[in-house]
Write a protein that binds this DNA or RNA. Structure first.
Lengths: 347, 347
DNA sequence: TAGAAAGTCGAAAACGATTTCGGAGTTTTC
DNA sequence: GAAAACTCCGAAATCGTTTTCGACTTTCTA
């Protein structure tokens, strides 16, 4: 491997000058700079980032932290899109990304320790249990940290407009004529709180009384949990006319479960998801859902993290990314349950 | 950040001894070793991998190379599962993974150059255009390289049993009574060749004459291309009774296109995919397909790469991973087209 | 034309580890 | 009781960069 010393020797100058020429320092004459650059290319010089990092204390690496306990991390549709965004933006700015884990080669270590070993410049967190003390440790460290869909006082946050998201989709359901709507919520996190706020806001505006029955707990995005939630809704009787799920996969598994009980979607019951990932488009009929701009979520997080790294100011900030209703085919006006409307026809 | 010098000072010994104690060298007494380890933990020492890498020439980093031009890399269902496998196995062995790209911070560079900058220990390649001269350059370099679903004479290969895959699924279609089967193939790569071999083998065994009409070209995994292929099949007339697609997504988009023309699946035409990703299970009815053990594909690639790194012998090897038929609901016996069977009923 | 200012360059220290080799001290061997 | 063998440790070189600071040239200014 060719080093700056090789170039120095070939050019008859010192390694210091080579380094300066390569890094556009002003105190090297145009002539020598040119000679050095030419020689560097000629010899196929590639700078050694390890050596550079050692002295500059910057690795050009940003860490990505996400839940991988379920072994589904990267295959998690929402996350993989976010990650794609993070990666693209990081690359554009010259950073590589590294996955942060708790265990490396059989050695237990905290997330922070992993970052310190690799001298990660900053971290993007997504889809993770923010209650984990190790995550807290990381967020409270000196590292620049940006979280997606989580808000706290001392790091950057990029969030989807969850209040609006659930508000809009609920309003949409109401506009179709639904009054008996259930929101199946996932982890009890900030996101869930926001969504429930949006849900209730829409109900309030339509003067539909809220009841605890309208909220059903499930876990996030796991097939079995979604199925369980639906089973529960069916078992307790008195079916709602619409169900909103916390994510598209949950909605799809939910629909499958409903159908397996002979309940037709959307004829008997309307369903909506949340996320707007591609799978929603693959099922029939196309899933009604709220699209989150996942790629932008990732890109903004990446960008924000890099800003924090480069400006060295770590003030907490929050960026909200808009959401968009996708009118698919899994929601329609509810059946006229009783003959209430018949008298009207008599007129 | 605390260094080995800090530990040395605190223990009244030299940095050399600290290093040795930390790395289990034999020439340090149990007593001092213990003292050093204790102090290291007490001070919260975390080794600096950059510094270590500089001298040992090993970064504990493996690179992952995949196509990201289409901006769909990480969200590509098949790949994300493979990547998950690569990552898990790498982590278990103490390696981090880094995505290799052609462009970093607006600076064009070859894949190999990216690897050299980061001093990547080895590379796993998947889902990529193996014709790319940059990929060739990488494969011909001194780096340990393992490819998934590609075979060449000088690197490690992990491949699914594609011959068997298409053989089995074709045989299955034949066993249902299909004779007029189309295989929609993707990129003309090694994988495609193998699959076509399997396809023809099944036909031969059943004495079904092969015709060029049975092969229809499409691109790999892009929605529009799959739709186009189906449109073509419809337009040219004389529909086959079964279509096998090169991957599950293509199959799902294909089914959507067929249905949009009023063709029922599986009643009018049977369909099968390939890959066995989760989406196949989400659609109705469940997609008939061949499951590839994606996670294992990734894990084996990772493991093989690490072996090459650690043993320093880069002999080309090939590992084949089995596939498994999933009988879904998108394939059934073909309609009895004409009244050929009626005479039988007379009996 | 002398002195100041600007422009170039290089020696050397630093970053944080690993590893070689030899020396000092201790124990074993004959 | 001396030589040989073994234990334990540290000085110093090394990996490939960056960066400071002083020195030397050249150009500018009055």
């Amino acid at each position: 491997m060719v080093t700056i010393y090789d170039i120095a020797k070939a050019c008859g100058c010192s390694s210091a000058t080579v380094s300066k020429a390569l890094n556009n320092y002003p105190d090297v004459s145009a002539k020598t700079r040119e000679k050095i650059l030419k020689k560097a290319k000629e010899l196929g010089f590639v700078p050694n980032l390890q050596a550079r990092a050692l002295i500059t204390n910057k690795t050009w690496n940003i860490g990505v932290l996400f839940e991988d306990k379920s072994h589904s991390g990267l295959t998690h549709y929402f996350f993989s899109q976010v990650l794609q965004g993070v990666k693209e933006q990081a690359e554009e700015k010259g950073y590589d990304i590294t996955f942060i884990s708790k265990n490396l080669g059989g050695v237990e270590m905290t997330y922070l320790e992993h970052c310190n070993r690799r001298k990660i410049d900053g971290v993007v967190i997504a889809c993770i249990d923010f209650e984990d003390p190790q995550v807290t440790e990381l967020m409270e460290s000196d590292l620049p940290v940006v979280a997606i869909d989580f808000i706290t006082s001392h790091i950057g946050s990029i969030v989807s407009d969850n209040v609006k998201g659930l508000y809009e989709i609920t309003k949409y359901m109401i506009s179709l004529g639904h009054k008996d709507i259930v929101y199946v919520y996932g982890h009890e996190t900030h996101v869930t709180e926001e969504r429930i706020r949006g849900f209730r806001k829409a109900l309030d505006e339509a003067s539909i009384p809220f009841s605890e029955r309208m909220l059903v707990k499930s876990k996030y995005s796991e097939r079995e949990d979604s199925e369980e939630a639906v089973e529960y809704i069916i078992k307790r009787g008195n079916l709602p006319t619409a169900i909103i799920f916390p994510d598209d996969c949950a909605a799809i598994w939910g629909i499958k479960t409903l159908r397996s009980h002979g309940i037709k979607v959307p004829e008997d019951i309307s369903v909506a998801g949340f996320d707007g990932v591609e799978i929603g488009e693959m099922v029939y009929p196309r899933l009604t859902t709220m699209r989150q701009d996942t790629s932008r979520l990732g890109k903004e997080a990446s960008l924000r993290c890099i800003q924090m790294i480069e400006t060295k100011v770590h003030n907490p900030t929050m960026t909200t990314i808009g959401v968009e209703l996708i009118e698919g085919g899994t929601a329609m006006p509810p059946r006229e349950k009783d003959v209430i409307l018949k008298p009207k026809k008599k007129n």
